[in-house]
């Protein structure tokens, strides 16, 4: 049985995961149809696994923003695998491709794809990222998600710089029905955090989610400000922030790697929220980021609605990318 089929069985075994998987598939449908149909075209076009086939596959991956280095690694291991298994024609190559993609993503230490929510006491989640990636929107969605799970949530309006940012978070707070701790525009974000932590503690909420202003990773002073915010949280709650989530725009190209590196250095990022994945961009750079920096993707943003934030699951992600190819492969098996 191929890897993908095993995976599908695993995923469709329980009905709950089936709906999640469906949602994920739906959100990724544009990404998937584009990429998968291209892989299928490729398979149909070549039939034989030769250099031309590899070259075109390489192009496909590069166009998904995976990046030169990772693509080269992937191609090398694919070539090796094809040789080892003595695969001459392209039938069944999809499963090898996705297997290798998952492998690239999952090498390194075991990182949790799930959020670390404390059983007792306050959990603090800090959001960081460059301008316009969707931090505030993701916070709104995450707050909704946690509230659905029965947690009490509070938001801290730490973006005191951008015009309208505090109001934006407040609107999300009202929508979701959670309290927003804020000060006026231009106030010290670290002071807002201090206030928020105090309020969160005194009101005994489960989770405090902290918004911060978008900042380009090469602005030294702004990165220092972030470290200060981090320090305040650390001092006020032992072990905080329990999660530092980097919001990353799926449309972003190779600069995302530099972003991840810089924010990791400054604030010890524990996970990525990959936003705007409902467009045509594929966000392939997360493969490289996970591979090089061991930062896992924890959530993906698949739209502008409250429930458009889904947990990231490597297998589902790759399954989503290759679902159609798999169904074809299965159909063939049936005939046999």
């Amino acid at each position: 049985m191929s890897f993908l089929k095993k995976m599908k069985e695993k995923l469709t075994g329980t009905s709950e995961s089936e709906t999640v998987s469906k949602k994920f598939k739906d959100g990724l449908s544009k990404t998937r149809t584009q990429f998968t149909s291209k892989v299928n075209d490729l398979v149909a076009k070549y039939r034989k696994v030769d250099e031309d086939f590899f070259e075109e596959l390489e192009d496909l991956l590069l166009q998904a923003d995976v990046g030169v280095e990772t693509v080269m690694e992937l191609m090398d291991s694919l070539r090796f695998e094809v040789q080892r298994k003595n695969m001459k024609d392209t039938a069944g190559i999809q499963s090898v491709i996705s297997e290798k993609l998952v492998e690239i993503y999952e090498t390194g230490e075991e990182e949790l794809n799930e959020l670390l929510i404390q059983d007792n006491g306050l959990t603090v989640i800090l959001f960081v990222g460059v301008n316009g990636v969707g931090k505030t929107t993701s916070i709104g969605k995450l707050a909704h998600r946690l509230k659905q799970q029965g947690k009490t949530v509070m938001l801290a309006a730490g973006d005191t710089f951008r015009a309208g940012a505090i109001e934006q978070l407040q609107v999300w707070g009202d929508r979701v029905g959670v309290e927003v701790i804020k000060q006026s525009e231009g106030s010290d974000p670290a002071a807002v955090m201090y206030d928020a932590v105090r309020s969160a503690k005194s009101r005994g909420v489960n989770v405090l989610i902290c918004d911060t202003a978008g900042r380009l990773q090469n602005k030294v002073n702004l990165m220092k400000e972030l470290q200060k915010i981090h320090k305040v949280l650390e001092r006020e709650v032992p072990g905080a922030p329990h999660e530092v989530l980097l919001a990353l725009d799926a449309t972003t190209g190779q600069n995302a790697m530099i972003q991840a590196q810089a924010f990791k250095e400054a604030t010890n990022v524990t996970g990525i929220v990959l936003t705007k994945l409902d467009g045509t961009a594929k966000g392939g750079i997360v493969l490289a980021i996970r591979n090089k920096l061991h930062i896992p993707v924890k959530f993906v943003g698949l739209g502008e609605q409250m429930d458009d934030l889904q947990p990231f699951d490597t297998e589902k992600y790759v399954y989503g990318l290759f679902a159609e190819g798999l169904e074809q492969e299965e159909g063939n098996d049936f005939k046999n």
Binding site: G140, R162, A163, G164, A165, E167, Q168, Q170, V171, W172, R175, E185, E304
Partner: peptide, 16 residues
């Protein structure tokens, strides 16, 4: 009219 507080953002910029 879709993104929360987008109008306020522009209004603040206008004021500035």
């Amino acid at each position: 009219i879709y993104r929360p507080a987008a109008i306020q953002q522009l209004e603040t910029i206008g004021k500035q």
